[in-house]
Amino acid sequence: MPILLLADHDNATLSDLTAKALTAASKIGGDVHVLVAGKGAKAAADAAAKLSGVSKVLLAEGDDLANNLAEPLAALIVSLAGTYDTIISAATSVGKNVLPRVAGLLDVAQISEIIEVVSADTFKRPIYAGNAIQTVQVAGAKRIITVRTSSFAPAASQGPLAAVEKISTAALSSSLSAFVKDELSTSDRPELTSAKIIISGGRALGSAEKFEEVILPVADKLGAAVGASRAAVDAGYAPNDWQVGQTGKVVAPELYIACGISGAIQHLAGMKDSKVIVAINKDEEAPIFQVADYGLVAGLFEALPELEKGLR
């Protein structure tokens, strides 16, 4: 039976996290159909149709689907579920919100945040903030899975064009919840989850102003995304969507620069698979140095401006 992959998109653009989840789906094996649910989402559907490994795109549009509300989206997926044995999504805030609801409605166990496909029914996933890796096998005919995208490379975007099929959404209307507003960060910097370089700041920054003053210029020089520790977010130095860690975003860039971050296990859970890790911390005993390829024991208010100047 084919696999149903829920696309992550903002109607206009398809998130590259979908291409990464597609890689996991393709490893499970079978035709992959991508579900694009939204409103005015033709552009996202066309982008999905180009991904290599996709055999069909289902485009479902309606007012109820415009804002990714869990109830109508779950109802839509359940209405399609009969012909699929695997329902899969990137572990984004949309996927994490809706797939367990689908699992509850279908009476199926879910496997969260897989990092490896061992075989069609066996997967690896991290537990305890990534301090242990479990190999889990699914009994039963259906599988519901979310994918930790930092563990999979994106599928190429030059496959033969798949057909885009419109599907009816007449039966979805849900009056349980209503969208009020989105307050999304707008920035020209790359997204945390797809950036090649990330520079992150911790509690040591001391204020939102200092965070901006010393972290952002280096980020701009490097074309890097900006991350933060929970302590920095809780204190209001950085917005919530910058949090890296067990309960924030999980990232694996080519280069991760941790500035004034101690290296708590919850933070390491979100970045320890980065290719190269740099730590700048004034305490030479800070645990972050245990995972850093290059450690610089220094005050960040001196080191970061110097770094910014030193980069061409």
Binding site: P126, A132, V136, Q137, I277, V278, F289, Y294, A298
Partner: peptide, 29 residues
């Protein structure tokens, strides 16, 4: 409904080196 076949340690990560200056850091990177 799920069967745990195995629980293992994650791939470890070794501490690297300490650099002495920002200039050395840039050079290494």
């Amino acid at each position: 409904r799920l069967k745990v076949l195995k629980t293992e340690e994650p791939r470890g990560r070794e501490a690297g080196i300490k650099v002495k200056s920002v200039a050395e850091l840039i050079d290494k990177l």
